[in-house]
Amino acid sequence: MMTGNPNQVLVDLDKCIGCWACTHVCPAELITFADNDRQRTLRFARTCSEDCIRCAEVCPEEVITLAPTTEIAPEGEYLTATFDLLRCQQCDAPFTTERIVNKLLALIPQEFQADAEELSWVRLCPNCRQLTEGEKVAKEWIMSRWRGG
């Protein structure tokens, strides 16, 4: 049932990084994501009838534009985008998209991307980051006790 002015949902798939922001925010749940072992699939309805622009507002990369339209796409017709998931270097579990990781690598200063032993935490999933930090901290602690005696 149509309520507001229909909008065509336009997504710049080259710039989309496959994060979750827009998937949470649509009142009609027209944007969803699903992960499998290898990929994340984002699905956008091609038109929406809601009188809101929340998805466009929350996008970190500003890839969504909503253009008024008279052509309403048939229900069940989606714009689909797939993103390769990066697998954790330690446990091999898929944890986020390659594009998100690349964005973070560009954002975060180089000197923070690896610890003293040149291990890059960026390619580890959050769980393994915790374990790695735990191991590092434990080792430091043992070393300090050895120095003591």
Binding site: V25, V58, L104, Q130
Partner: peptide
């Protein structure tokens, strides 16, 4: 918070 999740993967210690 938009729930984008970027900070979750930006944290070096995985504590978000």
């Amino acid at each position: 918070c938009t729930g984008c999740g970027l900070c979750v993967f930006a944290c070096p210690f995985g504590v978000i």
